[in-house]
């Protein structure tokens, strides 16, 4: 079956996010003064063949560990829709 998974990669807490800081400053200048902090990340939408959602989840986790995320500075989460 064809499964669609979403992998979200985020910076670990404590790792400087210059991009997030620049976005926060821009938001502030635009009048969104209520914004305290912005942390950026990225999502991957991946379609793959898998016998069931659980094994798709396993494959996506493996992909994240090996390539999509760098464990030194990033964390990831995997979500599977069938």
């Amino acid at each position: 079956m064809m499964v669609t998974g979403t992998v979200t990669v985020r910076l670990k807490p404590g790792v400087l996010d210059p991009q997030g800081q620049a976005i926060r400053r821009a938001l502030e200048q635009m009048g969104f003064e209520s914004v305290h902090n912005v942390r950026t990340g990225r999502t991957f939408e991946i379609q793959l063949d898998a016998p069931d959602p659980a094994s798709a989840h396993g494959r996506l986790t493996e992909m994240s560990q090996k390539l999509l995320a760098n464990p030194v500075v990033e964390t990831f989460s995997v979500e599977v829709k069938s």
Binding site: V15, L16, P18, Q19, A22, N70, V72, V73
Partner: peptide, 9 residues
């Protein structure tokens, strides 16, 4: 270790 975007962006 790892490389991050330059602090200056």
């Amino acid at each position: 270790g790892a490389m991050r975007r330059n602090a200056s962006m």
